[in-house]
Structures are given as structure tokens and as C-alpha cells.
Amino acid sequence: MSQISRGLENVFIKTTSLTYIDGENGILRYGGYDIEDLVEHTSFEEVIHLMLYGDLPTKSQLQKLKSSIDESYEVPQQVIDMIYSLPKDSDAIGMMETAFSALSSLYGSPWNKNNNRENAIKLIGRASTVVANVLRAKEGKKPIIPEPSESFAKSFLKSSLSRTPSNEEVKAMDASLILYADHEVPASTTAALVTSSTLSDMYSCVVAALAALKGPLHGGAAEEAFKQFVEIGEPQNAETWFRNKITEQKSRLMGFGHRVYKTYDPRAKIFKKYAKLLSENNDNARKYFSIAQSVEDLGIKTFSEKRIYPNTDFYSGVVFYSLGFPIYMFTSLFALSRTLGWVAHVIEYVEDQHRLIRPRALYIGPLKREIVPIELRG
């Protein structure tokens, strides 16, 4: 009798040297480095090098990588026009899918060990331009190409928001990019891997990943968690809301619980730190941070015995809101960061472990049946 694993839970589909997760003890590492240390002591660009080349870069390697990203911000006008041709109320991830489909037609090249990583770096640079212009198109602003600066995070914020971000904001954005960069093989990464197993191009793999991320059970959690805080409205309403919505109506508390972590998500702790820091300069953000703290306390009191704690999406929305992003962009910000994880995993798979992913389904329908002529069917 074949065994079915619904949701592929605890099914290993590849080996990886990219990301290590210890869900029991709340440990997350990229390439052997604790996530806390990477956020504190490195930049997103350094993590790009780590994920693609296996080591943190030297100064010269980092400069080369930055130069490659800077050169790739420019995307063909057809792609920008395609983004702006879509209705302003289009889903932001759907707009990204459209843009990456176009990029696939322009840059989708066969896999080649000699240039896979360089192609991935250019893809990440182009992703910044795509996400910035998705926001600008939806907000009715003119298109823009990010300008090179000291960091990927700063260039992205400046082009997206049409202002020069503070050092605190740049650091928070950089931390967010690192925190969301990879998390082994969730649904979107698995979709990218399935696509890569057919030897489809890297951009098409990202389209597949975006399609999976678009579903509310994967990518939309940060948006839904933050909408809870907006619904609550004021910190003093948190307890009544929690009792009515979570305790009595048995609604799901968004931003709590994780398939892998059975303790506090280490990324959530770091997001909470930056949420507190940034919200101090924004009255509405400060209010939402206070609401989030109250809901967290109530959630932990209610669910800790079931080993359900805040995950990375619980506080990330407060960070993104504090930076100036509308709620509808939160999942696209996740995607901008996770693009690194997607391309790193598909490169690792295609180069080292390639095999066409072709699972089976266990048939449970009728056995052999005889066809009855249509005139005799009832």
C-alpha cells in the first residue's frame, strides 16, 4: 500500500547547503551563519553572495556583485509599459507575474554553470525595478529606474517612495530582505523547483514561485496579520477583539503558528525589534505596534501550550507600514527578498541534483467499467 503525505509534509525533495532550520529550538541559519548575526553584521548583498557562491564575499567580490546589480536595474521599456498597462487595482503579485513573464521572453536563457549565478544576480536587480514600478503604477506615479547607491535596500526605497530614506529605514529594509530571503522549500520554492526540473529558464521558475506565493495561505500572511491590527483600531480594543474573534468565533490568529517552528520564530524577534524602532517616529505605526504587542501577549497566553507562537509575518507588516508601503505591497516585498532563495535553490537543484520531478497519485476511482451506449444511459 502506497503512503500518501498530504501537503508533502516531512517529505524531503532535495538536499541543500543553503538554509538550516531547527524548528524545535527556533534556529535559522543561512550557509551555517545564524540569522541574527547576518542581520546584525552583514548586508543583503553579502547574503546574495553567500547564497549563490557558498561564502560571504571579500571586499572585491562584494564590489563586483554590487556593480552587477547596479547595471541590471535598467529593464526594457516594454516591461515597464506592460506593468503600467494593467489596471491600478490589479493584484501586485499578479503584476509581478506579468512582468517576469515578459522578462522570461527577453532574458530566459538555457542553464549554464558558467553564468547561472551572474544571471541570478541580474534577475535580482531587475526584480527591484519591477517591484518599485508595480507600486508606482498602482499609486499613479511616473515610472522610474532605481539609481545605484550605497546599498540595494537604499536604491529600492528611494525609487519606490520618491524620497531619500533615513539610515534607520535603510537598515530596517536591509534586515527585511535578509530575513525573508529563504526558508528552505515552502510552497513557492517547491513550485520553482518543479519548474526548474523541466529545465525551464530561471525567470519562468520565478513566475511559478510567484503564482504559488499569491495564494493567501502562503504569501499573504503579513498583509492579513496587519489587517487585524487595523481592525482592532486602538490598543484598548485588543482584548475584546481577541475574545470575540479568536476565542469565541474560533477565527485563525494570523501571524501565529508555523509548519516547522514549534517555538518563537527567530525572524519574528528581529522584525519586532525593527517594528519598535521605526514606529517610534510614526504615530499610527506606534499605535499598531502597541496593538500587535497586546495581541501577541494574548496569543502566547492562549496558544503556547500548543506550541504556537508568532511567526515572521506577525511584525513585518508594522515594519513595512512604518517605511511607507501600503498594505497591498507587503507580499511583493516578501517576493522581492525571496527571489534570492528561489534562484539559489533552483541553481543548486539543476546543477547538483537534477531529476525531473514527477510524483504519482494513488488511484481510488472505480475499477474497469463498460461503456453503455448513450441512448441506454438512464
Rank of each mutant, 00 (worst) to 15 (best):
residue 3 Q to T: 14
residue 8 L to W: 09
residue 9 E to K: 11
residue 12 F to T: 15
residue 14 K to V: 08
residue 24 E to Q: 12
residue 25 N to S: 11
residue 27 I to G: 04
residue 33 Y to S: 04
residue 35 I to H: 04
residue 38 L to G: 00
residue 39 V to R: 08
residue 39 V to S: 05
residue 44 F to P: 10
residue 48 I to E: 02
residue 50 L to D: 05
residue 59 K to W: 04
residue 61 Q to T: 06
residue 62 L to T: 01
residue 65 L to I: 11
residue 66 K to V: 07
residue 67 S to Q: 12
residue 69 I to T: 02
residue 71 E to L: 11
residue 72 S to L: 07
residue 76 P to W: 07
residue 79 V to D: 06
residue 85 S to R: 04
residue 85 S to D: 14
residue 98 T to E: 06
residue 100 F to Q: 05
residue 106 L to R: 00
residue 110 P to V: 14
residue 111 W to L: 05
residue 113 K to M: 12
residue 113 K to A: 12
residue 119 N to C: 07
residue 120 A to Q: 03
residue 121 I to A: 03
residue 124 I to N: 01
residue 133 N to Y: 08
residue 135 L to F: 14
residue 139 E to S: 14
residue 139 E to P: 08
residue 142 K to T: 13
residue 151 S to A: 04
residue 153 A to S: 13
residue 155 S to T: 09
residue 155 S to Q: 06
residue 166 S to N: 05
residue 168 E to P: 08
residue 168 E to S: 11
residue 168 E to L: 15
residue 172 A to G: 04
residue 177 L to R: 01
residue 177 L to Q: 02
residue 185 V to D: 03
residue 186 P to W: 01
residue 187 A to I: 05
residue 190 T to R: 06
residue 191 A to R: 00
residue 192 A to N: 06
residue 200 S to G: 15
residue 200 S to N: 12
residue 202 M to E: 07
residue 204 S to T: 15
residue 205 C to W: 04
residue 206 V to T: 08
residue 208 A to P: 15
residue 210 L to D: 11
residue 211 A to M: 07
residue 213 L to C: 11
residue 213 L to Q: 09
residue 214 K to D: 11
residue 215 G to Q: 06
residue 222 A to R: 00
residue 228 Q to G: 02
residue 232 I to N: 04
residue 233 G to H: 01
residue 236 Q to L: 08
residue 236 Q to Y: 14
residue 240 T to A: 14
residue 240 T to R: 09
residue 243 R to W: 13
residue 245 K to N: 14
residue 246 I to C: 03
residue 248 E to T: 13
residue 250 K to W: 03
residue 251 S to H: 06
residue 252 R to H: 07
residue 253 L to A: 09
residue 256 F to D: 03
residue 260 V to P: 13
residue 265 D to I: 05
residue 265 D to W: 09
residue 266 P to V: 07
residue 267 R to C: 07
residue 268 A to T: 03
residue 268 A to C: 04
residue 272 K to S: 08
residue 274 Y to K: 00
residue 276 K to L: 15
residue 277 L to K: 12
residue 280 E to P: 11
residue 281 N to C: 09
residue 286 R to W: 12
residue 289 F to D: 02
residue 289 F to I: 00
residue 297 D to S: 12
residue 313 D to K: 02
residue 313 D to H: 08
residue 317 G to Q: 06
residue 320 F to Y: 15
residue 322 S to C: 12
residue 323 L to K: 02
residue 324 G to P: 13
residue 324 G to M: 08
residue 327 I to R: 07
residue 327 I to H: 01
residue 331 T to A: 08
residue 334 F to T: 10
residue 334 F to W: 03
residue 336 L to N: 05
residue 337 S to A: 15
residue 353 Q to I: 14
residue 356 L to I: 15
residue 360 R to H: 12
residue 362 L to M: 09
residue 365 G to A: 15
residue 366 P to V: 14
residue 372 V to C: 07
residue 372 V to S: 05
